[in-house]
Structure formats: C-alpha cells, structure tokens
Design a protein around this nucleic acid. Sequence first.
DNA 1: TTTATAACATACATGCGTGTATGTTTATTG
DNA 2: CAATAAACATACACGCATGTATGTTATAAA
Lengths: 206, 206
Amino acid sequence: MKRTKEEAENTRDDLLLSAIQIFSEKGVARATLAEIAKGAGVTRGAVYWHFENKAQIFDALHERMYRPFLDGILKGLEKEHPNPLEQLRDLWIELFIDLEKDERRKQALTLFMRKCNYSGDLAPYKEEHQKKQEQSIKAFEDYLEKYKNNGNLPRGVDSKTLTEGMFCYMKGILFQYLDEPETYNIQKKAPQLIGLFFNSLISNKG
Amino acid sequence: MKRTKEEAENTRDDLLLSAIQIFSEKGVARATLAEIAKGAGVTRGAVYWHFENKAQIFDALHERMYRPFLDGILKGLEKEHPNPLEQLRDLWIELFIDLEKDERRKQALTLFMRKCNYSGDLAPYKEEHQKKQEQSIKAFEDYLEKYKNNGNLPRGVDSKTLTEGMFCYMKGILFQYLDEPETYNIQKKAPQLIGLFFNSLISNKG
DNA sequence: TTTATAACATACATGCGTGTATGTTTATTG
DNA sequence: CAATAAACATACACGCATGTATGTTATAAA
C-alpha cells in the first residue's frame, strides 16, 4: 500500500514518537520493534522501511529531540541582561518549570539519561551524542566569557569551571527529578535548589 | 561436585564480582547469565543454585556494594570539625579522589546510575534502592542539623535544601566523571568543582 | 492507462537467552 | 563406611526478537 510522501513522513515521525514512549518505559534494550510499530499503528515492515534497526531509531531520536532543546537554551542566552548569573538562574528555573508540562521531552530526557546504556549496538553513538552536548556547554562558556570583565562574575573561578559545575548541578537535579517526576515538586524545588547554587555565587561577585 | 561451605560462598561472591564487570560493560538487560558464570569460572548451574535469576543478582549486588559505601560516608561524618561545610567539602573531594583507584566501586556506580533502567524485572527493586539512598541523605541532614545554631551554615537556606542540592551536585559530577573515567582528570576537577560549590557557601555563612 | 516502484504488511528462518530437568561428584552426617 | 544431600555441570525445551524475503496496494510517472 503505497502512501504519499507526506503520509510516509508522518508514519516515520509516528514511529519516532512511539519509540520515545516505549524506550523511556522499558529501556532501549528491552524495547521491541513490534511494540514501537504497534504504538505507531503500523507493523515492523514500516520500521524496517524507514530505519535500519533499533540503534538507528535511537540515534534519529537524539537528533530530533536534542536540536530544539539546544535551540531553546541558545535563545534564552541571546537576551541581554545586566547580571549573567541572575539570567542563568532564571533561565534554568524556567527550563525546569516548563519541563513539567512537556511530557515528551521528559520522556526523551529519561531515555537518554537512564534508559540507554550506550553499549553494544548503541556504543557507536555515544561519542557522537557527547559531542553534541559539548556544543551546548561551549555555548554557555562563550556566554560567560562575554561578562568576564563585567565585574558580575564570581571572583577566583574561571568560566570553564563555572560552566561545568553548573551543568553537573543541573544534570543532578534532572537526574533526581526524572527518578520520580510525579511526586517530585519541581515547581517548588527548582527555585530553591537552583537559587542555592547561583545566589551564593552572586553574593561573591568581584 | 559438592564443595565446602567456604568454597560455595567464594563462588557466590565470584559470581557477584563477575556480575559487576559484565553489568557495567553491557548493561543489565544485555548481560547474559552465561557470561557472568564464565567470568566467575563456573557455569549457569552455579548461578541458578545461588540466585533465582538475574534480577536477584542485581539486588544482591546493590546490597553488597552500597553498604560499605554508606558506612564510609558515615565514618567521615563522625569526625569532629569546627566548620561543617569545610568538612563536607573535604570529605567529598576525598571520596572522588579515592574513587579513581577503586575500579570495582566505579563499575558499581556506573552500573546503578547508567547501566540499569529499573524497568521490567528490575522494577520491584527501584523503590527499595531509592529508600536506601534516602537513608544516606538523611544522615547528611542530621549532620547539618547539629550545626544549625553554630553560625557556620549559610544564611537563608534550610539544611534539607542544602543537603539535596549537595547530593544533586555530587551526582552530577559523578555522572559526568563516569561517562569517561579514563580521560576525565578527576584529581584536578574534583577540588575545583566541589570547591566552587562549597566555598561560595562558606563565604555566606551567618 | 499502463507500468513501475514507493510504502508498507505478512511470512519465514534463525539464533539466542532463559528456565528447568537431570546428571555427577564430593563433603558431611550418622 | 554407607547414605544423603549440597554444589554444581550438562542437557533439553521453549519463547521471543531480529532480520530478511516475499507479498500487496496505492501512487506517481510515462
């Protein structure tokens, strides 16, 4: 049953969206292509038409979800603001608060943080996905460099360490949040935790 | 071939140690009992004699590795110190630096942070393992409560938020470190990153 | 209006891991 | 010293996911 190009692209995207669901629920390793196909309302035939195998679906998912995520961050950094640490603080708080309603992005994040092990058939994509992440890290470094001689950065810390520390902190919060998103009060905790990190840094500006 | 009780306990432990290796390499889902047995120099018969299935090995591993880990932390907190934040800072730095030589503990941490998805047959143990972690979180909370009226805690932050933030931060660092332990210069970065977090808090004591 | 082929569905073969059943040997008990 | 059972090894049956091969249908090109 041949479909039009648009229909075909829709089924491909349906497969990806279904894969997010299945992958995040059962983990990539235990997710079956039949389930993914069923979730998209098709069969394994459609899967093997659009993708080579499960690993390629996994990689295509990363491409599909990470790009808008990065763009959202970059857009938040473009706005002018007198105090970079305050801007970063509010940006991260906003990201976490918005995340609660974005079920799909939540699933994607749990998928890539906890439900894939990057071993075996997924190993080839580990380095590739890492490099994409380093891109966004670089974006924050460049952002902070702009304010280097502004006097609003904490004294005695280089922007690289600050960026990496910030990333670790956010990843840790994300890690905990995604562990039980339904009971975790992110609306309340995001400002508290993120404030804890940035506010003490803000007081130490020099 | 019946063995003495001591020999039997040795093979059981060999199986657990082999499981750490295999689990951390291939992930729990894609690890096979035959591999684990081979790593311990036995066959699947021994595995099914000592354990019910793979999931129970996984749980037994958590019991075996997490207990000494927690005890090590508690021991570090017992020592008297005038400034709690400095003590915590040095304790965490020490933990990370010591971790580099402890290959087995590194593998165990990657296993439980990234190589298991706690879904399917592992799902029953998710909550159980979470509760064990909350125990150690509680230990830090209680520790900080002791210094509540000391004047050495940062002003405006309750010990719960401080504890949770600290945990998130350490988990994030650990997450990044375990991503590529061979190239990550933890000896240098642990003091930098952990210092970034605590030193700015220390300056804000009140 | 054919014809070719895109976009799938269906069917088949294969391998692999699990669980269990059974066999084997050696320590332990009486 | 015989008998029992612990501590495994070996063998078997089963299901399940994958990959591929083939079948089917509607679309787009001629």
